[in-house]
Design a protein around this nucleic acid. Sequence first.
DNA 1: AATGGGACCTGCGCGC
DNA 2: TGCGCGCAGGTCCCAT
Length: 266
Amino acid sequence: MPELPEVETVRRDLAAAVRGKKIVAVQVNRAQVIRQPDVRRFVKGLAGVTITGVLRRGKLLVLELSNGKALTVHLKMTGQLVYPGDARTSRVSFRFSDGTWLDFNDQRVFGEVRLLDDWHMLPLVRSFGPEPLEMSREQFAGLFAGRSTRIKPLLLDQKVIAGIGNLYAAEILFRCGIDPRRWAGSLSTAEIGRMYTATRAVLAAAIKHGGSSVDDYVRVSGKPGAYVPYHKVYARSGKPCLKCRTTIERISQGGRGTYFCPACQR
DNA sequence: AATGGGACCTGCGCGC
DNA sequence: TGCGCGCAGGTCCCAT
């Protein structure tokens, strides 16, 4: 499932693959992923524009265009951007002036693609909290002070901090030894400091390895990311903790699975 | 303010 | 073999 490290990997891959290319046609195989009322306007609006840059905000990809607009892509659960593609099994494909295709694939059709005049005005973007990798320790600590909710669901809340999903929330809390059931407001300054360090370390390491290929995530080349072997707790319930051999547990928080080591995480 | 549920989707693994 | 079921989860939306 694409979270910050996966989306950042795709951003970098995409910048290298398609920046400077001119879109000459769009093939819409499943109109549902175009999250705006007029699909024809989406298609016409992209003809003849060049991709000038690729940005990421939270889990959202932003392709900057030569006409000042932006093509935004949210991969949600099963979205992929693949280049070069073939437009055969994609949901939407973009054809460039050199004849190549960029495919947006999405098995579960949760993904969202938009053509926007100003991507900053997208409600999702307006609601985002700060970027975890562009934040001071003090700013990070301020996110949790006085919050009467458990720490793991809070890390997942994009309004609080943008980009962390279920997998990395689990890995971050294992790394800093904090129980996911802890009340956010009960964390000491030292614990928040450890969580800050762990957040940056886990996300940076995952980016370095091209993300985690669980479910459908692949890089733009179609190759998997290489971070799964580094997972310590995610999807490891019933298996021994890699640090202390205690059995990893799975509980449900906010309707989502939480994996943790009951001995290492306090 | 916080929480819980359903909706959106579809493939997979499970029990029978 | 085949069926129904629960599960996976990012985000939105509604109810409490």
